[in-house]
Amino acid sequence: ELSWTAEAEKMLGKVPFFVRKKVRKNTDNYAREIGEPVVTADVFRKAKEHLG
Rank of each mutant, 00 (worst) to 15 (best):
24 R>S: 03
39 V>C: 01
4 W>K: 01
12 L>I: 05
39 V>P: 00
36 E>L: 07
25 K>D: 13
8 A>G: 02
34 I>A: 08
13 G>M: 15
26 N>S: 11
16 P>L: 05
10 K>G: 09
45 R>L: 14
41 A>W: 04
23 V>N: 02
19 V>Y: 14
38 V>L: 10
13 G>Q: 15
27 T>Y: 08
27 T>D: 00
36 E>Q: 08
42 D>M: 06
38 V>C: 08
11 M>Y: 05
21 K>N: 14
43 V>A: 03
41 A>G: 09
19 V>Q: 14
20 R>D: 02
11 M>F: 05
22 K>D: 11
2 L>H: 04
25 K>C: 11
47 A>G: 04
32 R>P: 00
30 Y>Q: 01
21 K>P: 12
17 F>N: 09
25 K>M: 14
36 E>H: 07
9 E>G: 04
33 E>S: 14
31 A>F: 01
32 R>E: 04
37 P>Q: 11
35 G>A: 05
1 E>C: 13
44 F>E: 01
31 A>N: 00
6 A>P: 13
29 N>R: 13
36 E>P: 01
43 V>D: 01
49 E>C: 10
23 V>K: 02
49 E>Y: 12
15 V>N: 03
10 K>E: 14
40 T>H: 03
36 E>D: 04
51 L>F: 15
7 E>Y: 04
6 A>E: 13
23 V>A: 06
35 G>D: 06
44 F>Y: 09
46 K>M: 09
10 K>R: 13
13 G>I: 09
39 V>N: 00
27 T>L: 07
14 K>C: 11
51 L>M: 13
18 F>E: 14
24 R>C: 03
1 E>W: 12
22 K>G: 07
46 K>Y: 05
30 Y>R: 02
4 W>P: 00
15 V>K: 03
6 A>R: 08
46 K>Q: 12
7 E>Q: 07
48 K>D: 06
40 T>A: 02
17 F>A: 13
37 P>F: 12
45 R>S: 08
38 V>Y: 07
48 K>N: 15
38 V>H: 06
34 I>C: 09
42 D>Q: 07
16 P>H: 07
1 E>Q: 12
22 K>M: 13
46 K>T: 06
27 T>A: 08
14 K>I: 06
4 W>I: 00
42 D>I: 06
44 F>G: 01
1 E>D: 11
3 S>W: 11
35 G>T: 03
6 A>V: 12
36 E>M: 08
12 L>A: 02
23 V>W: 10
49 E>I: 12
51 L>K: 09
42 D>S: 07
47 A>D: 01
32 R>A: 06
51 L>E: 07
50 H>E: 06
25 K>T: 12
31 A>G: 03
13 G>N: 15
18 F>P: 14
38 V>G: 03
49 E>N: 10
5 T>N: 05
49 E>H: 11
52 G>R: 15
30 Y>G: 00
32 R>W: 06
33 E>Y: 11
24 R>H: 04
20 R>C: 04
48 K>R: 15
5 T>P: 00
2 L>C: 05
14 K>E: 14
4 W>Q: 00
30 Y>F: 12
10 K>M: 13
38 V>D: 03
48 K>T: 14
34 I>T: 08
31 A>R: 01
12 L>Q: 01
38 V>F: 07
4 W>G: 00
24 R>A: 05
4 W>A: 00
2 L>Q: 05
22 K>I: 15
14 K>T: 08
31 A>C: 07
42 D>C: 07
1 E>H: 11
13 G>R: 14
38 V>M: 10
9 E>Y: 08
31 A>H: 00
17 F>M: 13
38 V>K: 07
27 T>G: 02
9 E>P: 00
12 L>N: 01
42 D>K: 07
40 T>P: 01
19 V>N: 13
47 A>S: 06
6 A>N: 09
29 N>S: 11
15 V>C: 09
3 S>N: 10
42 D>F: 04
12 L>K: 01
21 K>I: 13
44 F>H: 02
5 T>L: 03
45 R>P: 02
36 E>R: 05
31 A>K: 00
16 P>R: 04
35 G>Q: 05
33 E>W: 11
52 G>A: 14
14 K>P: 03
14 K>Q: 11
9 E>D: 05
50 H>G: 07
23 V>D: 02
26 N>E: 15
39 V>M: 02
51 L>C: 12
16 P>M: 04
13 G>T: 10
4 W>T: 00
5 T>I: 02
40 T>R: 02
